[in-house]
Amino acid sequence: MNHAEPRPWNPYLAGALSGLLIIASVVLADKYLGASTTFVRSAGMIEQLFAPDKVAKMAYFLKEKAIVDWQWMFVLGIFIGSLISALTSKSFRLQTVPDSWQERFGPALGKRWATAFVGGVVAMFGARLADG
């Protein structure tokens, strides 16, 4: 690779700081970190645009309502935080196919994106089944 990127932070340090962040979140907001419920709420919001009556009656959307809550903002924050970090450390790189995928399977966009889509469907179904 010909792009110089600064060295990553020590994973033990960054992990321990994340642990402290979890503690702070539990103390200040009574919230443990999670992400997958946000995909349920967002799917509900999108479906609501087309079939509001159906969404209003579905058991899972009654359990996990189609609203923006603490976790929804947390997930949005991950995007913003990563963007800020990448832009301020010369490590932002627009890329359509990951390096190691390209080495193994070539640069074709369709193959990678189709696999990512299918993987996303399967991963989220499993994550919700196991409850996050």
Partner: peptide
């Protein structure tokens, strides 16, 4: 979402897939 934040656009396909997976689970 973090991967998308550092410019990895293939994460978008995954995010759309995960939304579909969540709808399927519902």
């Amino acid at each position: 979402l973090g991967a998308l934040g550092e410019g990895r656009l293939d994460a978008l396909a995954g995010i759309v897939g995960m939304l579909a997976g969540a709808a399927l689970y519902a």
